[in-house]
Design a protein around this nucleic acid. Structure first.
Length: 209
DNA sequence: GCGACGATTCGCT
DNA sequence: GCGAATCGTCGCG
């Protein structure tokens, strides 16, 4: 389990963010942090399409110190702190200056389960990596890893090629935790691999306008 | 400066 | 199911 084929940069430059969010399903997310290697498979993503998506941090071209990373070239990592304690990993996509991003919500452990258990000692099997904050904790990802090129296997965090998931094996549903985003909250921009037990909760969300 | 709040998680009821 | 934890970011002034 070594020698991974990385993803071509040109893929990340696409502006078809819904395609990319499904394309990333099945791919490897790998971390090599604190001398520990963890290999996982991406099983759940969410798309955030600046500038008109009200759920995006870059909504309405908002550009601040924090969101500056979102305007980087596609394939860059955007890691931010949520609720003061949870790190969230996103994949910036599109050309430079286009602030689209894809949130990695859940992964399936492939290698390095012992490391994950060490980092999340209280989590039971399927609760180890089934949420965006849990993913970062399990892989050791923090805001220090903001701004990395995810197509470069010499970086401590990167994405590698693997299976493609066919459309009939992808579940689309509304995104989680964005009730404030009004009509955008209803869009089916959350993508999960069908019947995969490692996807995150809640399994359904219901927003009222 | 200051106050409000968040792309969540966990433990307890 | 509910509420607390916890702090950087943002917007206002």
């Amino acid at each position: 389990m070594d020698n991974f084929k990385t993803i071509d940069l040109s893929i990340f430059l696409s502006e078809d963010i819904l395609y990319l969010a499904t394309y990333l399903l099945g791919k490897y997310l790998i971390s090599h942090i604190d001398n520990e290697k963890v290999i996982t498979k991406i099983v759940e993503t969410e798309a955030y399409k600046a500038p008109y998506d009200k759920a995006s941090h870059a909504y309405n071209h908002r550009r601040t110190k924090r969101t500056e990373t979102m305007y980087a070239t596609g394939g860059t990592s955007y890691v931010y702190l949520c609720y003061g304690l949870h790190n969230m990993l996103n994949v910036v996509t599109g050309p430079k200056e286009v602030a689209h991003a894809i949130l990695i919500r859940a992964v399936e452990p492939i290698e390095g389960m012992d490391v994950i258990r060490q980092r999340r000692p209280k989590a039971k099997k399927y609760n180890q990596t089934n949420g965006p904050g849990k993913v970062c904790q399990a892989l050791g990802i923090t805001r220090k890893h903001n701004g990395l090129s995810l197509y470069d296997s010499t970086n401590p965090v990167y994405i590698a090629d693997n299976q493609n998931i066919t459309a009939n094996n992808v579940i689309k549903s509304p995104r989680v935790g964005i009730a404030y985003a009004e009509e955008c909250a209803l869009w089916d921009w959350r993508f999960r691999i069908k019947d995969n037990p490692w996807t995150s909760t809640p399994h359904t969300v219901n927003y009222k306008l």
